[in-house]
């Protein structure tokens, strides 16, 4: 593999400056994805800036409610954090549905958000991939695409975002705090990841060199009435075939508010705004939940091998919401 330089910055400013000065630099946190991709030749940084020594590894309760999760908090620590489990159990559930114990011990909050697609064509330098090498084509579009997108894809890329945590954060209206050479900025997680469009190689709206320092999760009064359902091909370590993050607030039997997001269906975690809209203010029934899912999935354009994801997500949506409403049929 390619030789690279390695640096541990003293603070965020130095980290950002190092990235700014070296076009082929990358931040290294848990390394559970980047190091694999370096071995495979998919990513070939000249410089690794190791941010795990920066003081970004705490979970704070913010005045007025809400939480700030440091960028380098390990997934295991975050999932087990008593405050998280109390205030935002959706995050714990999503985290524990992902990866393995060993991986969660290393992987970080920001690293989880910024992990790359597991599309097999992206990970193989012998195959065409516009995301890895713009202009080479998308081998997945007419190849093995069972695991790939049904929503928001383009002819140039049909990859999915693999994170479970990101789906939960999108549902919870979380906001990323980042530093870049231009200063500090905030980006809603729902706007952090892009759809591929004409530029699948651009995966996030972060400016070049930006370092995520924290993820802020606002308070949500009904955050404890939540669930994360993940359909997977095996019980042991597996990425989602499809997942649903949901939180529901009922006033009697009327939907006062709802949060719904889908995973493994698109290039980004997919907030189901249309479905939420279809639910709000209406008396909750299983039929309404199904109609809401259909409203969201009306835009789905399945690929040759993944048409099953549409009924799968629909069924998961109904189960998630009926369970939260206490009206699950069984």
């Amino acid at each position: 593999m390619k030789a690279f330089r390695y640096h541990r910055p003293a603070d965020v400013a130095e980290a950002v400056a190092l990235l700014d000065a070296e076009p082929a630099a990358a931040y290294l946190a848990g390394g559970t994805n980047l190091v694999d991709l370096m071995k495979l030749g998919v990513q070939r940084p000249e410089l690794l800036v190791d941010v795990t020594g920066l003081p970004l590894d705490t979970v704070e309760v913010l005045p007025g409610g809400g939480l700030r999760i440091g960028a380098t908090v390990r997934n295991s620590d975050l999932a087990a954090d008593p405050v998280i489990r109390r205030e935002h159990p959706l995050l714990s559930r999503a985290l524990l549905a992902g990866a393995s114990g060993q991986l969660r011990n290393l992987a970080t909050t920001a690293g989880n958000l910024l992990q790359r697609t597991r599309c097999v064509y992206f990970q193989d330098t012998g195959k065409a991939c516009n995301k890895r090498e713009p202009g080479t084509g998308c081998a997945a579009r007419h190849g093995q695409n069972r695991d790939l997108a049904i929503l928001g894809w383009s002819e140039l890329c049909v990859a999915t975002h693999p994170s479970d945590l990101a789906v939960a954060l999108v549902a919870l209206d979380a906001v990323v705090e980042a530093h870049d050479p231009g200063g500090a900025r905030e980006i809603p997680v729902a706007e952090l990841h892009r759809t591929p469009g004409e530029h699948p190689e651009r995966e996030t709206s972060l400016p070049r060199g930006a370092l995520i320092t924290a993820v802020r999760v606002p308070p949500l009064p009904f955050a404890r009435r939540c669930t994360y359902l993940k359909a997977r091909d095996r019980a042991s370590f597996a990425f989602a075939v499809g997942s649903v993050a949901a939180a529901l607030d009922l006033d009697g039997d009327t939907v006062r508010d709802v949060r719904l997001a889908y995973g493994a269906v698109a290039h980004r975690p997919w907030r189901a705004y249309r479905a939420e809209e279809a639910l709000r203010g209406r008396p909750f029934t299983a039929e309404l939940a199904a109609q809401a899912a259909d409203a969201e999935l009306a835009a789905a354009r399945p690929l040759p091998h993944n048409g099953f994801k549409v009924p799968l997500i629909r069924n998961l949506t109904v189960r998630a919401l009926t369970t939260l409403a206490g009206t699950a049929p069984r």
């Binding site: 193989d124 019980a235 042991s236």
Partner: peptide, 15 residues
């Protein structure tokens, strides 16, 4: 096209 243990699933203890 699948040639690692994340994309070629082998049953493990939890299964």
């Amino acid at each position: 096209v699948n040639h690692d243990l994340a994309t070629y699933h082998v049953s493990a203890c939890a299964d």
